[in-house]
């Protein structure tokens, strides 16, 4: 098993993300925003995003920066701050290929991927236009009962899982906190790229209290430090929040990006797009 590579920063880390990669990201608890910004700065193109199971600024920013070709999602929204305008614009304009799903279907597809099995059955969905627009979903007969249709979801095997964690060690072990879903993500994905607020010299797996919430290093391809790497989202740590959400920033983003010109201005201001790229 090759060692987890320690990278200089998120910009160094995203060199591991080729154009066209299928990238999975979890909805909260350490959203890897610095990785999103690094992907935008590197002008990575044609990403196929899998949101687990939904997303907010992570997906909207990458869509607005022109990095995303396709998305599989149960929903993209900025929550209490309002709609994700780059997402809705791109779907309406037909420039973003969308595979609509429902939250537990994305978890179940990843769980099939994590177990190395071809599909997972799931209740619900029958009779919805979600199912009617997913030719890759199938309705099968429960083999153990009479006349019991059930939906079969194909395994989701992303190329890369990205995540931001409060704490990691130099061996590549990641402390996930409450976000146990991140294990499913990492298990189902071929590779995991992570940033961490802090990377310590010891070994997190030596600590019985921290170890159960750790993703062991053999899942982690590369790791980079990223202080405030979840900003403008909050980052929970082992002893409470390391920092809270930047509500002013999120509110301003949600308001101004209703106008596509303002989205370009935002990307330039944040150093995510070269000024000369804007008309």
């Amino acid at each position: 098993m090759p060692e987890t590579r320690l990278m200089r920063d998120a910009d160094d880390l995203v060199r591991e993300v080729p154009d066209g990669s299928r990238v999975a990201v979890f909805k909260d608890n350490g959203i890897p925003m610095e990785i999103a910004r690094a992907l935008a700065r590197a002008q990575v193109r044609d990403l196929d995003l899998v949101t687990v199971p939904t997303s907010g600024l992570f997906a909207d920013l990458l869509i607005g920066a022109g990095c995303v070709l396709a998305i599989e999602t149960a929903g993209v929204s900025l929550g209490e701050f309002g709609p994700a305008h780059n997402f809705t614009r791109a779907v309406r304009g037909g420039t973003l290929k969308i595979k609509d799903s429902t939250c537990p279907a994305i978890y179940a597809g990843l769980q099939a991927g994590q177990k190395g099995i071809p599909f997972m059955p799931l209740r619900g969905l029958v009779g919805s236009d979600i199912l009617n627009n997913r030719p890759d979903y199938a309705v099968i007969d429960n083999p153990f009962a009479e006349n019991d249709p059930i939906v079969a979801l194909p395994a989701i095997r992303p190329d890369i899982a990205v995540m931001h964690v409060p704490l990691a060690d130099r061996h590549g072990n990641l402390w996930l906190g409450r976000a146990a879903e991140l294990k499913i993500l990492a298990h189902a994905s071929a590779r995991t790229l992570a940033t961490a607020e802090e990377i310590i010299d010891g070994n997190l797996l030596d600590d019985d209290r921290l170890a159960p919430a750790c993703l062991p290093r053999h899942y982690v391809t590369a790791l980079a430090p990223a202080p405030r790497g979840a900003w403008p989202y909050e980052c929970p740590g082992p002893d409470g929040l390391l920092y809270g959400a930047d509500a002013d920033h999120l509110h301003a983003y949600a308001t101004r990006t209703r106008d596509p010109a303002e989205m370009r201005a935002y990307l330039i201001e944040q150093g995510l797009m070269p000024a000369e790229a804007a008309e």
């Binding site: 199971p53 149960a74 929903g75 993209v76 997402f87 779907v91 609509d100 429902t102 619900g124 979600i130």
Partner: peptide, 24 residues
């Protein structure tokens, strides 16, 4: 999900979230 013909709808909302499962 939205208004108009899927997928490039006239109005697009955020998505189904857990509804297509929990409603059952």
């Amino acid at each position: 999900t939205g208004l108009g013909d899927y997928p490039d709808m006239d109005v697009r909302w955020s998505g189904a979230f857990g509804s297509a499962y929990l409603y059952f």
